[in-house]
Amino acid sequence: MIEEGKPLFLQIAERIEDSIVDGSLEEETKAPSTNELAAFYRINPATAAKGVAMLTDKGVLYKRRGIGMFVTAGARQALLGERRDAFAERYIDPLLAEARTLGLGPDDLAGMLRNRAASAPISTEGTPA
């Protein structure tokens, strides 16, 4: 579950974000504590705290004094928007650049996507509930 070469605190933050995006950690609900994260992933609590602090700084989590960390209202939509932007940057922009090189227009690309989607196996994995 732990990826080599990527800082653990980033992996912790990404796992929490994944839980928010997939709906298993809902907005305005309590997020796992630093100690719970440290015990679950068998890491130093300071490392887990760094991942949680990163999400707090980002506005995804907020602290209720004496109670714990909670998911911010609107966090899911903000994370989805951020991921959509990253998706476009990582996949769509290079796709469009190559399409231009090949002389393909938007209609050509849309047709290719429809054809590929029609022949692709049906999967609900990663589909938001």
Rank of each mutant, 00 (worst) to 15 (best):
A31Q: 07
A31K: 09
A13D: 04
L104A: 15
I20V: 15
N35R: 15
N35I: 08
A86F: 06
G126N: 12
Y41W: 10
G81N: 13
S19C: 08
E28L: 12
V71P: 02
V60S: 04
F70W: 08
L8A: 15
T34C: 02
K63S: 14
V71C: 03
R15E: 13
T56R: 10
L55H: 03
R65W: 05
R65C: 00
I16F: 01
I16A: 02
I43L: 02
N115D: 14
A75G: 04
N115C: 06
T127C: 08
E28V: 11
T47L: 01
E17Y: 04
R15H: 10
K50E: 15
A75E: 03
T101R: 12
R65M: 08
V21Y: 01
D18M: 05
L102D: 05
G111R: 08
G74V: 05
E89T: 12
R116A: 13
D22I: 13
G111W: 05
D57I: 01
A13W: 03
G68R: 12
I2Y: 01
L25S: 03
L113F: 10
A48N: 04
T127A: 11
A38G: 12
I12T: 15
G51S: 02
R84Q: 09
A38T: 06
G103H: 00
M69H: 12
L95D: 00
P45N: 15
Y62P: 01
K50T: 07
S123N: 00
E36T: 12
A129Q: 06
S123Q: 11
P7T: 11
E14N: 13
D93Q: 13
E89W: 04
P94L: 07
T101A: 10
S123F: 02
A39F: 02
E28A: 14
K58R: 14
V21F: 03
K63V: 06
S24N: 13
N35G: 05
I12E: 02
L25F: 04
A129V: 07
A38W: 05
E28S: 14
A46N: 12
E4G: 09
L25Y: 05
N35Q: 11
K58D: 14
E3T: 07
E4L: 09
G51H: 02
K50I: 01
P94S: 12
T34G: 13
P45T: 06
I12P: 06
R42I: 02
R65S: 14
A75V: 00
R76E: 03
S119P: 01
Y41S: 13
L102V: 04
T29R: 07
E125Q: 10
L55T: 09
S33R: 06
L109W: 05
T34Y: 00
A75S: 10
I2G: 13
A129W: 06
G66Y: 03
L95M: 15
L109G: 14
D22V: 12
R83T: 00
G74Y: 06
E26D: 01
M112T: 10
S19M: 12
T56Q: 09
Q77D: 14
L102R: 15
K30V: 11
D107S: 15
Q11P: 01
